[in-house]
Amino acid sequence: MKALITGAANGLGRAMTDQLLEAGHEVWAVDRDTDALDDLAIKSRGSCRVVLADLANPSSIQRLLRDVKDVKFDLVVLNAGISATGRFEEIPGAAYEKLIAINLTAPLVVASQLMRQNNMAPKSQIVFISSLSHAVGYPGASVYAATKDALAIYAKSVRKPFKKRGVGVTAVFPGPIRTEHAERYSPKDAKANKRMLPEDMAKLILKAASKGKKELYAGKGAGAAKFFGKLAPNMMSKMMRKVIFDKLDSNTY
């Protein structure tokens, strides 16, 4: 099997990459972190194809699409993402532009162009990594929440048209994971042991993708969050404000 993973060098993306490589699959690992990509290339003893790309840069995305032009992928995981947390009005506009470019524009462009270029093998799967914030809201990261909601609805919108061309779409809504990303953007007193291990999350996502599942809510309390988020959306975002926004003492972007 051939897989393409964005944001593959660290965190959840790295865990998925490692597991696929271990199972003997061919992985195209896309990231902007050169050190981590080197590490990936060395540890996989050259079996992983590392691709340096900055998904905030449209011409870098175009180069990536040219590089993979003749490859047929069985699995594409659009996982790369950043955040910006703090008081909405205090974070610089440029940080929001970058956040939207990486979290939203890049996955939409990559997914649609891989379809257009005929890069997807028959019965292949595209996985969009949204967030549990889709169910509960995310005061203190309203633009991050916007990109993840947009991603969820894009996945839902293209599911039928892509299916007609033989490509399945999975939307994943992960709860907190124990990665550097989560560490960086969470309130200081947040407990790391309440977050799921990236390896466990990776396993669940790859399993859902191989089964062609439409949606996956995963992580501690994800099921309950989805249920109450739909039942009482305002109450849930109020609660999120208390547990996150009110505790953020600095802006991180």
Binding site: R87, F88, L104, L108, S133, H134, G137, Y138, P139, G140, A141, S142, V143, A145, A146, T147, K148, D149, A150, L151, A152, I153, Y154, S157, V158, P161, P233, S237, K238, M240, R241, F245
Partner: peptide, 21 residues
Amino acid sequence: FATYAATKAGLEGFVRSLREE
């Protein structure tokens, strides 16, 4: 119109969180 729908869902997510903030 998948992208248009996504941008409008994005606005809704933005509003939901910012309203609380």
